[in-house]
Amino acid sequence: MRNLINFIVKYHFFFIFLALQVVAFIILIQNSYYHRSFWMNSSNYITGSLYTRYTNIGEYFQLKNINEQLSRENHNLIKQIPYSFLKTDQQIFTHRDTLYRRQYTYINARVINNSVNRRNNYLTLNKGRSHGIKPDMGVITSQGVIGIVKDVSANFSSALSLLHADTRISAKIMKNDHLGTILWDAPDYRTVIMEHIPPHVDVKLGDTIITSGHSKIFPEGIHIGTVSNYEIRRGESFITLKVELFEDFNNLTYVHVVKNLYRQEQEELEEQAETEPMFW
């Protein structure tokens, strides 16, 4: 026993090194497989409020871009208002519309921390649980998909960026509805790739890629990008598309968090279908 203690004391440098490495790896592994503990990320109170202050200053330099973006969005919205259409039908009638019910609402949030130069990038938003944000909600802008909320604190939330090795988004080609998966191959933050397109599908450069609506996270038809290149990789039987993103991830300010009002219902149904034993 005494020899053992002497041994440990003699080589304490190495043993402390080993112990600290083990602790670091435990934190690392815990955080990549489970939801991150509340203090270990930028959505905690101290780092969150520091980043908010920092963004408050930095935002002034973005005002021009934000205004341009807002006016573009307004322009698109005005085009859709009924009075901007010329009525060609003389018979006017009104009825209560029960065909449409609202499925998605949006929570407006500001990006207070963001990166594009790492292999796994995260965003921090200035709204959290008290504003109605929950884990696994989608994050979008008017120009495209941004990411998925991962952790939430009272006033902040942290989201996986689309530029993350674990992010997979179900998408389709707008003109013919063929499905594929969007993921990011580092390091260029302006392009992502879309996998699993069967080779018979007709794809042309410049085709628009949109979300498929097959997940419970994003509504159908959110724009992602345009096809800039395509190839069949060696040893694969599917086409891989290179997709140029509409959104400049290096320049994010305001985003919308997507809230799916029918999510619970859909999840319960799917769970039921999976767990119930079936007898044919």
Partner: peptide
């Protein structure tokens, strides 16, 4: 904590100190 990279920088910096 600031850059959302739980444990990575800790591990690399401890190695460097070692």
């Amino acid at each position: 904590v600031f850059s959302d990279t739980a444990g990575m920088h800790a591990s690399a910096t401890v190695l460097m100190a070692f």
